[in-house]
Design a protein around this nucleic acid. Structure first.
Length: 784
DNA sequence: GGTCTGCAGCTTTTT
DNA sequence: GCTGCAGACC
């Protein structure tokens, strides 16, 4: 029996009104997730079978969290609920019935990179110039059209129908054809094809309508036309549809999300009940006040006033930095101070508008030795070596996938050059077979004898791996691929730092597969690939309690932290300059700011820089207009807007002063010469390696005066490995030391070579042979 | 025909 | 600071 007394009257209303359409307007921090989970539990308590419940969330992380909480409330039966993202839900529906649309069930899901590859291929075939028709722009047009449920032809009809549009149409059509030939769907197709499947196949629609008699949709303000139609289609029979959202947190307009979906819900369902959750349980009074004041500048909102019983708390701190480095130093030092004051690193977040801003921040954290973790940017699955191995798995699972086939046909190098591949592809096209099929039987493809031999070798390899596919679990299969293709062997032979790094990433991939198998013991290769396509790095978040979080504002949606820094609060950065002249876009930026502010429970820090180096040029930006939308009474050391590049000292006797007097090292006065030479004497710092850094120091280590980045220990996070693991400084290794490695287990250091950043450690592992590591990157723990 | 090296251009947010 | 491309080299 679930306990409804845990809920306030409004939350309770939202939970108990299980029948008919319901709109829950849930302000930030108002207990939205609680309502959703209790509602599912309540339904089950009322006798609704779990398998009749569909709950849709925006991220996989949110889905998993919700599932966990529902399981706690309602017991193991809840396992049968469908709780997933739109994309995962669609993928599941399509895996069952996509053959009705003329695809095979083994279809591949193409990511943005694959889309670009296909588009470039299309442009080439149509002899269109990439300069004239930038693939990125085409991708945007196509994605936009699909999100609006337009076919290429319909898109053209509503365009200007210029010559340009006509050419774009051709590329669009060809893109669709190529995807189909490759038995592949892009992200947007997952929604579009599901809709098509349901619309064209009444029995299938009936099945799902009947199955999902209760539907819940989270973050409804971020649904696009396709998602909206899908929900309507599925829910129109039972009408038991509960949507939860906050129009003030709609931040995905650029991705086709239509805020009107939530604003007009009551028009779509005139009998809908509306429940507003306005009590905020998350933030202090001052933080909430600041958020309310900022968002009040937007027009056309749903009437809503968030309030809290919490105390006022501290005021919002504002730091006006000289430049981006000064800002980053301030943030890192303040974070360090908070940690010393007892705050857990995982309760601190630094949020910024664009991924490009993360680098300077990272450098500052590295310099202070403060543990941090960057989310987004270059994703794990975007790394070349990881993509290559995934591409092997993909083409073996879906032999029609020419894009993946092309990717791996000469990786590692097997002397199959571009012209050979082109000839082979032409031969495949003539005979209506896939590239892989052609490679397996290249005798009549008209290749030179040398080329034919190389291709045959590849074909035989793939044939042998195909046989493995049906016999092996994902981990074993990946192992076979690595062995038979000689991928790692080729890297080992290269012997440079980069290759060692790549080998490490491959081990992380193996770790990821192992973790997947732990969670899905029955999972197939196909299931794993699906997981890879639909799961992002952000989803693995909870594993990093021991590190400060660095991420974009968009990624932070749905998360909360005790202390939040909003960095780069400058006009031109946030709001972005391209959004400043467009009222609608400016409002979306403002909502993003609202999302950022409301992530904070206890403390909020805003910072801006008088000048900054971004996109290769130095620019001077005034403080963000959003800062001036917060009343000065809520700000510590408040400053007038446009007060010039001087740093504003904190007002006397106010918290700001005390809070940063104790920082490890006072921020230095600005010195242009010094600013120019910054970063020069720091050695071969590799931010790419640092991206996967976590918990990068022993907790009690003092911040080094003169930073030597090559000695920063433990430059890797074990993918899916245990959290908060501390790694000893590798530069202290000596021959004979006993060390431990996450994948290889325990071993002994047998050789040290190279100097500084190029230093290598050779370790002999029991039963696993010898491995060579880059000393500054190896995840080796010294054991006594 | 294949591979390697050096240089230019580009960077909003993501399921 | 990474990717893509052109040109040189094998």
């Amino acid at each position: 029996m679930i306990n409804l007394t845990d809920l306030n009257p409004m939350q309770r209303l939202a939970v108990e009104n299980t029948e008919g359409p319901l709109l829950v307007l849930a302000g930030a921090g108002s207990g939205k997730t609680r309502v959703l989970t209790y509602r599912v539990a309540r339904l089950m308590e009322n006798g609704v079978p779990a398998w009749k419940i569909l709950a849709i969330t925006f991220t996989n992380k949110a889905a998993r969290e919700m599932k966990d909480r529902v399981l706690q409330l309602a017991g193991p039966e809840a396992e049968e609920c469908w709780i997933s993202t739109f994309h995962a839900c669609c993928s599941r529906i399509l895996r069952r019935d996509i053959e009705k649309l003329g695809y095979k069930r083994s279809f591949t899901i193409y990511d943005e990179d694959d889309r670009m590859t296909v588009l470039k291929q299309c442009l080439k075939a149509l002899q269109m110039d990439e300069k004239q028709f930038p693939p990125k722009a085409l991708r945007a047009v196509i994605s936009d059209a699909k999100n609006k449920l337009l076919t290429p032809e319909e898109w053209f009809q509503q365009s200007d129908r210029s010559f340009r549009d006509r050419k774009t149409l051709e590329a669009f059509q060809r893109y669709e054809t190529v995807l189909k030939e490759n038995n592949a769907l892009d992200f947007d197709d997952l929604l579009v094809k599901t809709l098509q499947l349901l619309a064209d196949n009444p029995p299938v629609l009936e099945y799902y309508r009947d199955k999902f008699s209760y539907i819940l949709v989270d973050e409804y303000q971020d649904t696009n036309a396709a998602q909206y139609e899908l929900v309507k289609l599925l829910a129109s029979q039972s009408r038991n549809l509960c949507v939860v959202g906050d129009d003030d947190q709609s931040i995905y307009g650029w991705r086709g999300a239509d805020i009107r979906n939530i604003l007009y819900f009551e028009k779509d369902f005139p009998d809908a009940r509306v429940v507003k959750l306005e009590q905020n349980y998350r933030s202090t009074g001052n933080i909430l006040d600041a958020a309310n004041q900022v968002i009040a500048h937007n027009a056309g909102r749903k009437e809503k006033a968030l309030w809290t019983e919490a105390e006022e708390g501290e005021r919002v701190a504002l730091y006006r930095a000289l430049d981006e480095r000064d800002e980053a130093t301030f943030i890192a030092q303040m974070a360090e101070k908070l940690i010393r004051g007892g705050e857990r690193p995982g309760e601190i977040a630094v949020l910024y508008r664009t991924n490009a801003q993360s680098r300077v921040l990272e450098e500052a954290f590295v310099r202070l030795g403060t543990p941090y973790r960057v989310y987004g940017g270059l994703k794990f699955y975007d790394r070349k070596e990881v993509k290559d191995l995934i591409a092997y798995m993909r083409v073996l699972a879906n032999p029609d996938d020419d894009v993946s086939c092309r990717r791996v046909i000469n990786e590692p190098r097997r002397s199959i050059g571009e012209s050979t591949v082109d000839a082979l592809a032409a031969y495949a096209a003539e005979n209506g077979i896939s590239l892989l099929a052609a490679a397996m039987a290249p005798e009549d493809a008209g290749l030179s004898s040398r080329a034919r031999a190389a291709v045959s070798g590849f074909g035989e390899l793939m044939l042998s791996l195909t046989e493995q596919l049906y016999e092996s679990a994902p981990d074993r299969f990946l192992e076979e691929i690595i062995q038979q293709t000689g991928y790692v062997k080729a890297l080992e032979e290269a012997r440079d730092d980069e290759s060692m790094n790549r080998i490490e990433n491959i081990h992380e991939l193996q770790g990821a597969v192992a973790e997947f198998m732990r969670l899905n013991p029955e999972g197939t290769v196909q299931d794993f690939l699906e997981n890879v396509a639909l799961v992002t790095d952000i989803d693995g978040m909870e594993e990093s309690r021991g590190a400060v979080t660095l991420m974009t504002l968009h990624s932070a949606k749905g998360l909360e932290f005790d202390c939040v820094f909003l960095a780069g609060m400058e006009d031109g950065i946030f709001p972005l300059s391209r959004a400043m002249d467009e009222p609608e876009q400016l409002e979306e930026e403002r909502r993003l700011c609202y999302v950022g502010i409301t992530r904070a429970r206890k403390r909020l820090f805003l910072s801006c820089a008088a000048q900054r180096l971004l996109y290769n040029s130095r620019s001077c930006n005034p403080p963000s207009q959003f800062i001036s939308e917060i009343p000065p009474r809520l700000i510590q050391g408040a400053v007038a807007r446009g007060a010039g590049p001087m740093r504003i000292a904190p007002a006397p006797g106010q918290g700001m002063r005390t809070s940063w007097r104790g920082a490890p090292e006072p921020t230095r006065a600005y010195n242009p010469r010094e600013a120019r030479s910054y970063g020069r004497d720091e050695g071969p710092y590799n931010p790419r390696a640092a991206r996967v850094t976590e918990d990068s120091r022993p907790r009690d280590a003092a911040a080094p005066k003169k930073p030597d980045l090559s000695s920063i220990p433990g430059l890797r996070k074990g993918f899916g490995g245990p959290p908060d693991r501390e790694v000893a400084s590798v530069n202290l290794f000596r021959v004979g030391d006993r060390v431990s490695h996450r994948i290889f287990g325990e071993g002994t250091v047998v050789e040290l070579s190279g100097e500084g950043a190029g230093q290598k450690v050779r370790v002999r592992f029991e039963g696993k042979g010898e491995k060579l590591f880059a000393a500054n990157a190896a995840p080796l723990t010294k054991i006594r």
